[in-house]
């Protein structure tokens, strides 16, 4: 059903010099500590990473609860923040398609889609036989997802020992990791334009609209990159 050899190759992407384990640990430890401060109990914090598994959305949820936002407001705010997962899925899953594979694998494993797993998969899918790419993806996703849930529990338990300096230190790890991965992905002109344009436009559009900044900036820079990039490698 699942090719265990390929699955474990995906799982093994957690090891080695390009491992996402450290940045994942850093940000979910910080999240666990933050959820405890926001009044969540241990089970709820773990459930949040288990079922949501998207850091910016989880932060928005915690912040919204603290200011007493309604559930509908939380839904809209989280949806806006995490809508980036839609274009990310559409730019990855067609690469993993194979007619011999059942649909449930795709429907279930889309839950594993996050920035770290996406960047790893985009970086390494070519090495895997097309037929088993979805199993490779499930391995990557399962590994990163379980790491996130585990680290949320650890962060929650350690929160009393984490001072502000340590929290600041932990919070830079994730953006640094993502930035390095993005620079590593700039292998052709259109991706380079997309990355550079997005980095500049993100903060600029944020000055005008905090909620829509990321989607607007991404849409504009991405479309420009698509139009001017010429021949696209992916």
């Amino acid at each position: 059903m699942i090719n265990s050899k390929v699955f474990s190759r995906g799982l093994q992407s957690l090891k080695g010099a390009r491992s996402p384990a450290i940045p994942l640990a850093a940000c979910f430890i910080a999240l666990g500590a933050l959820l405890k401060d926001a009044g969540f109990n241990l089970q709820q914090s773990a459930a949040s990473s288990f079922f949501t598994y998207a850091l910016p959305g989880q932060l928005v949820m915690a912040e919204s609860l603290l200011v007493g936002a309604s559930l509908l407001n939380i839904f809209i705010a989280v949806w806006l923040v995490n809508f980036r997962l839609y274009p990310m899925t559409v730019s990855l899953f067609p690469l993993l398609k194979h007619k011999s594979q059942p649909k449930w694998k795709y429907y279930l494993s889309c839950h594993f889609l996050a920035v770290s797993s996406w960047l790893i998969a985009k970086d390494s899918y070519k090495k895997i036989d097309k037929r088993y790419r979805i199993d490779f993806w499930m391995g990557i996703g399962f590994g990163t997802w379980t790491t996130a849930v585990l680290m949320t529990l650890i962060g929650y338990s350690l929160s009393d020992y984490l001072n502000k300096d340590m929290m600041i230190g932990l919070s830079i790890v994730n953006p640094v990791y993502f930035f390095c991965m993005m620079i590593g992905a700039m292998k052709n002109i259109s991706i380079s334009i997309a990355v550079i344009g997005g980095t500049i436009l993100g903060p600029v559009v944020y000055l005008f609209s905090t909620e829509w900044a990321i989607l607007f900036a991404g849409l504009i820079a991405g479309t420009v990159a698509f139009l001017f990039g010429g021949k696209n490698g992916y």
Binding site: R84, F178, G198, G218, F226
Partner: peptide, 20 residues
């Protein structure tokens, strides 16, 4: 697909630029 690919990278980059 190519358009989605560019937009996905740009959205991530925008998020990172904003985070920094």
């Amino acid at each position: 697909f190519q358009w989605f690919n560019c937009v996905a990278y740009s959205i991530l980059a925008a998020l990172l630029g904003r985070m920094i």
